[in-house]
Amino acid sequence: MTSAAATQGKKKTLKTGGRRINAQMIPTIAAVVIFILMIIMGQALFGTYLRWGFVSSLFIDHAYLIILAVAMTLPVLTGGIDLSVGAIVAITAVVGVKMTNAGISAPVAMIVMILIGVAFGLLTGTLIEEFNMQPFIASLASMFLARGIASIISTKAQTFPENNNFDFIAQKITIIDNPKISHDLYINVGVIIAALVVIFGYILLHHTRTGRTIYAIGGSRSSAELMGLPVKRTQYIIYLTSATLAALASIVYTANIRSAINTVGVGWELDAVASVVIGGTIVTGGFGYVLGSVIGALVRSTIDPLTSDFGVPAEWTTIVVGLMILIFVVLQRAVTAINRKE
């Protein structure tokens, strides 16, 4: 939030125990509180949510969503969006598995998957900056293109061959191994990759000129241009990074489930947006945190097992997510209205 303050002026703060809290942090704080309450509720009712096994599964099964949440944070901070991330997961997953089955080494397949993500990020950035398209339309075009190509390549489920080098990403790494308990704490390389992505996103946004420019664009693109900031170059970086991280999420997810199909990733862009919004990033841009998006991803990930344990039908889960997004958007609007009155 470093340069957002410069572009949006003075923001209302709340005094708490002698400290000042930016009013726009309220949605992020609310997300943290909701996540804690969900875990406490799950533990109180079902007795499994504070077990190491649940924690391990939460991070391993949803490492890809954490990566996508970081990816989506960048365009949303500028008031944009990247609808292509789910389709990029699909096309890169199908290509990666097909290449591996053709006898191509996993490292080469991974590099190709990343390059495909880069290509789609470059396409989206070009449509936005060179053809003056709205991010919604530009990324929607990329989404349909990627999904269509993935369907042309294959419409059948593809499975990795045995003993492929993708396996190391899904290999479990035990952190706590206590023979007295049945649920050990473990992670895999995919979780480590997700953690590195979070660190990368934090450094990019809060400790680089590019990050300051991203916040400035979200505050006011015209003001950022008048300040002489590299707006055009930053927009390219945003969508290149977002698409590349989507390809990386595809590698992590595909290695974990050992298969791919052209329909994978459908709706994941919306899950990523939900994570970002729940995490407190303002949808109109200019304010938000990578760590908030991570919390949002964890909240989104916890909804599934919690609603399942309550016996709620799977189709109702989307209603719960929709209501949470509505609540957080209303909360953001309320905070913005308060700031404007000050």
Rank of each mutant, 00 (worst) to 15 (best):
15 K>Q: 12
304 D>A: 15
290 V>E: 01
226 L>N: 12
243 A>D: 05
159 T>K: 13
83 L>F: 04
192 I>K: 00
163 N>E: 15
160 F>I: 07
146 A>P: 07
316 W>H: 12
165 N>D: 15
278 I>C: 03
190 G>K: 00
311 G>F: 08
317 T>R: 13
316 W>K: 11
83 L>I: 08
277 V>N: 06
43 Q>L: 10
177 D>T: 02
230 P>W: 01
14 L>N: 06
234 T>D: 03
280 G>W: 13
285 G>Y: 12
163 N>D: 13
74 L>H: 05
43 Q>S: 09
56 S>M: 05
220 S>P: 05
209 R>E: 12
147 R>I: 10
110 M>K: 06
168 F>L: 10
263 T>N: 14
260 A>H: 12
174 T>V: 14
64 Y>V: 03
189 V>W: 01
262 N>Y: 15
113 M>D: 12
194 A>C: 01
71 A>Q: 04
192 I>Q: 00
172 K>T: 11
93 A>V: 06
40 I>T: 10
42 G>R: 07
206 H>A: 11
43 Q>I: 08
159 T>P: 02
290 V>N: 01
86 G>R: 12
100 T>H: 04
209 R>V: 11
182 S>L: 13
201 G>N: 09
143 M>S: 08
310 F>M: 15
48 T>M: 11
294 V>A: 00
64 Y>I: 02
92 T>M: 05
10 K>R: 13
118 V>G: 03
214 I>G: 13
56 S>P: 09
52 W>L: 09
282 I>W: 06
89 V>M: 14
35 F>K: 02
318 T>F: 13
258 R>A: 08
91 I>Q: 09
229 L>M: 06
95 V>M: 10
99 M>S: 07
97 V>T: 04
333 R>C: 07
298 L>H: 00
128 I>S: 01
273 V>Y: 10
160 F>C: 04
182 S>R: 14
133 M>F: 15
221 R>C: 06
158 Q>V: 03
71 A>D: 06
10 K>Q: 14
96 G>L: 15
1 M>N: 09
69 A>Y: 01
272 A>V: 06
209 R>D: 08
254 T>P: 02
168 F>W: 15
227 M>L: 14
64 Y>W: 15
69 A>G: 07
255 A>R: 01
317 T>E: 15
314 A>C: 05
27 P>M: 08
282 I>K: 03
5 A>M: 14
236 Y>H: 01
4 A>L: 05
222 S>G: 03
55 V>C: 07
245 L>K: 00
331 L>P: 04
310 F>T: 04
25 M>T: 04
234 T>H: 02
63 A>D: 00
145 L>P: 04
